[in-house]
Write a protein that binds this DNA or RNA. Sequence first.
DNA 1: CTGAAAGCGCTTACAG
DNA 2: CTGAAAGCGCTTACAG
Lengths: 332, 332
Amino acid sequence: MKKVTMLDIATKAGVSKATVSMVLNKRDENISSDTRNRILQIANELNYIPNSLARSLSTKKTETIGIIIPDITNPFFSEMARAIEDVASNLGYNVIFCNSDNELNKENKYVKLLISKLVDGVVFIPGGKSNENLQILINNNVPFVLVDRYVEGFEKYYGVYCMNKLGITKAVDYLVGRGKKKIAFVRGPHSVEISTQRLEGYTETMKKYALFDEKLIFENEFTIEGGIETTKKILQLKEKVDSIIFSNDIMAFGGIKVLIKKGYKIPQDISVIGYDNIEMSEFMEPELTTVSQPIYEMGKCACELLINIVNGKAIDEKQVYFEPDLIIRGTA
Amino acid sequence: MKKVTMLDIATKAGVSKATVSMVLNKRDENISSDTRNRILQIANELNYIPNSLARSLSTKKTETIGIIIPDITNPFFSEMARAIEDVASNLGYNVIFCNSDNELNKENKYVKLLISKLVDGVVFIPGGKSNENLQILINNNVPFVLVDRYVEGFEKYYGVYCMNKLGITKAVDYLVGRGKKKIAFVRGPHSVEISTQRLEGYTETMKKYALFDEKLIFENEFTIEGGIETTKKILQLKEKVDSIIFSNDIMAFGGIKVLIKKGYKIPQDISVIGYDNIEMSEFMEPELTTVSQPIYEMGKCACELLINIVNGKAIDEKQVYFEPDLIIRGTA
DNA sequence: CTGAAAGCGCTTACAG
DNA sequence: CTGAAAGCGCTTACAG
């Protein structure tokens, strides 16, 4: 069975394919309702599905956006991806996902792929110092919106962020308010800007309270394993810690697992605070106290912003900043 | 800055675009190494990125596959999606993701969208009785591979499955072997075949041991909330239960949360077994005993199978069945 | 070893 | 109210 094309419909209806094109695209002000109906009916009978490649080649628009994301398997990103797909879908766009694993060369490969597919724009969650890859997008006139992670040198481009320093500040304030003094902080990798911003929030606030101690700062990947590893290290400190702030929720999961296993009571023996407020954090026991980022909102906002740009709408603010919130639950 | 095309390269190199096309596509046996090098260098200088829409329109191949999946936010599916993307990417394919939320009309919309984008094939995780949507794919000659969930009437099409009945049988056998007698079973929704298959495993095995009691069967969605809700109901039974088998891991998460909160010791008071073995199940405390499906393997297999079909390779078995395994950890 | 030409399935001024 | 024609950027026999 061959695919049915506009030409098939046109022949069957005894008109030209230009006419078919017009009615199928609702630019049919000037078409007699007679031929319009005939065409519509035939298209329907034949189960016509337009070839959007041909269409896009001609119009230079694909109604497709790309999204470059570190790893769809990470709940933070899958929730965000979901938001983006939902919004895009509602606005008549569809999305191509690309997992970069925070590797610049994978990003590079995908950037080129997306360009070659003529995506109308891309939502980009950079894996690190992605300057070169962003530049390729710029050179090819494909608009993008950065999400979640700053890239030095690209501060003036479209972006949707959450205030990282503020988030950790809120966490430290809260712990200190509850009488905590030995607060460990587990930062994320140096390659991503937000890790450093969160660290700054910690450092400044701890100093404000004259509680700062460099030995309480640890570093690891934003993974469960990272949380596990580092927590074991923290427990070996000769100076006992009374709380731990992890730079994201899945690290905190790993940490909590270790703590429970070693018989610590949370939050009685040690308080734990995560970061992100992924869905799962509410469903563990004890429920995770965490700094909430409006993940779905951020994804939604980024996608709407991008599609507005694509459609040439006026944009009032090129960067939007969301405010994080401390969600107090069972672990601190 | 206008996008650079083959014509630009051709003009600059003083050759025709046919020649450029040949060398860029490595069909350059007959091209003098002189002109080949010239073309390559110019393409490089100009940062040429091919327009794959134009290419695909001509070749009828897009090197793109679609994947229709219930919800990328569900770890089972995101792990599978990741596997599919990895394999596809390695084989030079990229993938368009579509979340169906198990709704047939969303599936329908996406099926048409994928066809209109001329995807080479689709990996399809049906949300239910997807017969009509599969038929559209068939009518349009786009090959597909079913994954995880059977669709009645499509047993003879390509598919990658895991033996559901066997999985639950193993779980029941194990519990009975440990002296459990009051084993509750939480099934998934009727609309998806695998729920029923898992139930069959439960029913048959419980009957084998003369332990079957219909009142121990519950039904809910494959979600954390589903697990929470049903577990509360189970705890209200006047007859106390000594174990619960959940039809997937995230239901089990919800269940465990309720149990811990109400002060039950796991597995001393109540044993819990999940299904899937998503990554997270290993990282909770206590670690989840669960029936493991080779999620990544299944995704990988489905994607390889699809791409083999697309490329006209001979396929020995149209259906592949993986065997589930009971992973004994801390909750049973 | 290389080019001219047709074709992929659409859209879009333009003409009538 | 409708059609002929050119064009989008490639690929692919075919000819020379």
